[in-house]
Design a binder for these strands. Structure first.
Lengths: 292, 292
DNA sequence: ACTCATCTATCTGAAATTTAGATGGCAACT
DNA sequence: AGTTGCCATCTAAATTTCAGATAGATGAGT
């Protein structure tokens, strides 16, 4: 059988250390063993991986290209061993998390980066259900965990925990009539408001509605594009505004009223009756530990 | 060294054939060799891959999961050998193709599906440069091949070949004033036209402009969303209209004039002075062979 | 120019691994 | 009950891998 994992490992370590001798030391093998393995690999593949022109071998173009492939294979082999290890530890094999767009992306990215380090062999699916209710996904079992903004009433089957509050800003285009004034409630009512569309009706759809004339758009990104064009104004969480490519073309005028409850609560939800594995448990605790 | 490719192969073939004996026959090895390899693999991984309760072994849950990983590793090993083979054949390692959105996606998908079969080890990068000139990408070497609509003058360094003609339709919202009339030239001028925005100015930016009042939008998809809202009308290629989720809400009124050159030519472009490898050659011939 | 250190390739013999073949025990089928 | 096909175990042989010794080449330092 040609091309063994040992050969690939000798090849990769030699490339990384810069010499067969150093690779042999790293692998705790005789230098000749490494030399022979690499020579055999080159014979099996039918090309040179290293040029031996000088004292130190250097990778050929083919060697550089195949190094990437070899690394992938060795990584996958480690991954397979890791998957086997996770069976021993009874860690979930797969986790589905539904997250509303309102959760700050940076904090989320940090959570999942750490999750990846802790549970490298758990298959993760992240849903961003713009057009679906996060709590319903968790209720029906389509998601294991949900992160969403507060609804008036959650089904009693769901457990929840408040993670924090996300500030919402009123935003419009720089040429919009409201761009350079201190905006009051009547001002907001007089101009078209652009709201996030949800495909299922519910109280959350009307939650931030102020104006009688509204547009519904299915993406915050497109909302900001439209707002930039002066078509209307919108309430958008500040992290979404920051992340938008058109942020520089937007105005965030000052509001005259202070009693409007602009920050909205962000909740973590899960199904009380479904058992929680170590990965889901870790994730819940990690979300809860981060103040947003 | 634990977990060898031979072990993984014995495992995968045994899973596929349903028995160690059949795997041994497939692999032209003694049945005991296969049995031993699988047992050694299970010992290395620390878990059972097969249940031996009956006469035929059956995969355990761990075995089913690890079978997927093992297959990936064996596939990657074959891929590595394939990459080595492509070096022998002097096939390009990488190809960048810039394609204007006007090229019908279905035909393109078929071309690249076939390309993937012919050149499985060529790294392909597809650019859809909405905001950049395809011919300039090819001229500057950022793309090896370009597919674009005809410009008035191409730089002399570029070779080109006409692939065909794409019909362009005038489209508006169903509530737009032009929706239910036979539209003439003056009608078009009187209403806002929405055009594809390009970040660099050039003659192609104004190519389809008819109306004095225009909007520029960076995406055909968003153009159609805006057209649907009755904000204006647009010229859009018919395959883009068909692919849009809002196609049902659009009107395509009949035009009174017949001499307008609505179909636009689609060109394949390449740099005359840059050598063309077998993968690029194949791709050019394949694009040329498809009538659109 | 000389010396020294480090490198790779080759060779030999030993160790480790893999394999084929024989065999026993078990399950499923007829 | 008899037959067939399977897996696990054992033994001996074949193959592969390895360590260690060695020769020759290269590069750095003096």
């Amino acid at each position: 059988m040609s091309v063994s994992l040992d050969q690939l490992q000798a090849f990769v370590v030699a490339a990384e250390t810069g010499s067969f001798s150093a690779a042999a030391r790293r692998l705790r093998k005789a230098q000749s063993a490494v030399s022979t393995q690499i020579s055999n690999l080159e014979e099996d593949l039918g090309l040179a991986l290293f040029s031996r022109a000088g004292r130190s071998p250097s990778l050929t173009p083919a060697g550089e290209r195949l190094l990437l492939e070899a690394r992938v294979i060795l990584d996958r082999r480690e991954h397979l061993i890791g998957v086997a290890r996770s069976f021993e530890a009874h860690v979930e094999q797969r986790l589905v998390v539904a997250i509303d767009e309102i959760y700050p992306e940076q904090a989320m990215a940090e959570v999942f980066a750490e999750f990846a380090r802790h549970f490298p062999h758990v298959e993760l699916e992240l849903l961003f259900p713009m057009m679906e209710d996060v709590s319903r996904l968790v209720l029906t079992g389509q998601a294991d965990i949900g992160v969403m903004w507060r609804q008036e009433i959650l089904p009693t089957e769901l457990g929840f925990q408040t993670l924090g509050w996300v500030p919402i800003k009123m935003v419009c285009g720089k040429q919009h009539p409201l761009a350079n004034v201190r905006v009051d409630w009547e001002d907001l009512k007089r101009h078209r408001q652009i709201l996030v569309a949800a495909r299922n009706d519910g109280p959350e759809k009307q939650r931030l509605r102020v104006a009688p004339e509204v547009w519904w758009v299915e993406s915050h990104w497109v909302i900001l594009q439209l707002v930039r064009q002066g078509i209307g104004w919108a309430f958008v969480s500040s992290h979404v505004i920051k992340a938008s490519p058109v942020a520089a073309d937007l105005a965030i005028p000052e509001l005259q009223f202070d009693d409007f409850d602009l920050p909205v609560a962000v909740e973590l939800v899960w199904h009380k009756q479904r058992p929680c594995g170590p990965a889901a448990k870790w994730l819940r605790e990690r979300f809860a530990a981060i103040r947003i």
